[in-house]
Design a protein around this nucleic acid. Sequence first.
DNA 1: GCGAGCTCTTGACAAATATCAAGCAAAATG
DNA 2: CATTTTGCTTGATATTTGTCAAGAGCTCGC
Lengths: 232, 232
Amino acid sequence: MPESAYQDIRKLHLFSNMADEHFQSLMRGAYVQNFPPQIELITEGEPSDFLHVVLSGSIDLFSQWNGRDTSMATVRPVSTFILAATINNAPYLMSARTLEKSRIVLVPSQDVRAIFDIDGNFARSIVTELAQCYRAVVKTQKDLKLRTSLERLANYLLRQQRRAGGGTVFDLEFEKRRLASVLGMTPENLSRAFKGLQPYGVTVSGTRITIGDQADLEKFAKPSPLIDDFST
Amino acid sequence: MPESAYQDIRKLHLFSNMADEHFQSLMRGAYVQNFPPQIELITEGEPSDFLHVVLSGSIDLFSQWNGRDTSMATVRPVSTFILAATINNAPYLMSARTLEKSRIVLVPSQDVRAIFDIDGNFARSIVTELAQCYRAVVKTQKDLKLRTSLERLANYLLRQQRRAGGGTVFDLEFEKRRLASVLGMTPENLSRAFKGLQPYGVTVSGTRITIGDQADLEKFAKPSPLIDDFST
DNA sequence: GCGAGCTCTTGACAAATATCAAGCAAAATG
DNA sequence: CATTTTGCTTGATATTTGTCAAGAGCTCGC
């Protein structure tokens, strides 16, 4: 594995506080790979053999049941995914596929569990990471249960706007079909939802969004830090 | 705090592996209280001052936004709640209220964080607990996004049946109004959903459920361990 | 530069779900 | 024991959301 990748991984909260010796040990068994777009990296139900770390690109976590499927979350660099399954040595609950060309580190799960048992700092880092992941899912669930699809879209736009720097004009981060799935609706409905936000000053042109009247949209969306603020 | 309560708490996975000294230290700052039904123990948005442990009774975790509210989960003895907020020293994401007369232990959050920093075993236990909570929420989210309300009810009944011992006849664990909220629907719709399951052999009389044709209901519900098995 | 294959949009329609209002039944209360 | 309250159910209706089919607009590769 190239030295350069070491640095990026070491910088992750998850790995930044552990003993150097243990980090080296983890990395010895790990390997980096480049994947093309649309490759299914893991499949739900399978045993969790590797902890994954995204160095570049992006990953779609999704799930299927009875012929239906839904996007659960997007993983962006630099962060890990499927940490909970690795820790619990339990089967993956979600599948993962590359959205674009992606560079991924694969760390054998049993190595993670072994180091986790002997390195207190590493264990603490894992706790913090897991607690954050947990809180993120809780927020998503509140979003799903307490809001209509129009409200979910409005709040999503406000979040994405912030992530893009807060300007009036910004781009969607991925294709609308997937956005619809993330927000728990059909692509057709997403189209209509965008139209439904026009009265609040939202203009759409391809992937480009314009927030015409910030105050008006926020008055409708009623964003809450307890749902929309992913940093806390 | 009475000695008898110690034993119950000590038996929890979360506390069973830590050093006795640290456990004593945690308990010194903790106190036990009895609450009547329908008391709001914590409110979302407030700082997480205490880790809560339910010794008896049951707790409803719920959330509100824009005048609406929804039940997120039920906590039964003996287990903790609001662990993630305690660990991250972040505001509560959910409110909690007693459903019935309940006995609760309150452990100061800063004590938990302090012991967590010096006791590796405790830290590991917390990781396991958190990972389980995380996976539980992911399963709930899959249930919400991939299934219709009728399918959610059918699978809920199968889960509840199992929890109640697996017999053909069993009781609902709480009132229907709350069940509706847990399943993400209105009480009126829950009534209709029960009727919708009659063709599959489900009979309802008050809180008493009878599964007339197990195979038929399962064929419709299509339960999956990756959604409905809360042990993994 | 042009067609093939996409995604996205739109309209018409169907299904699912929510809302409102009323009535019923069981449980709590005096 | 009667009365009130509360939760549950039901029907009628409205709203939301999904489905199907068709067409518009893009992108990509040849």
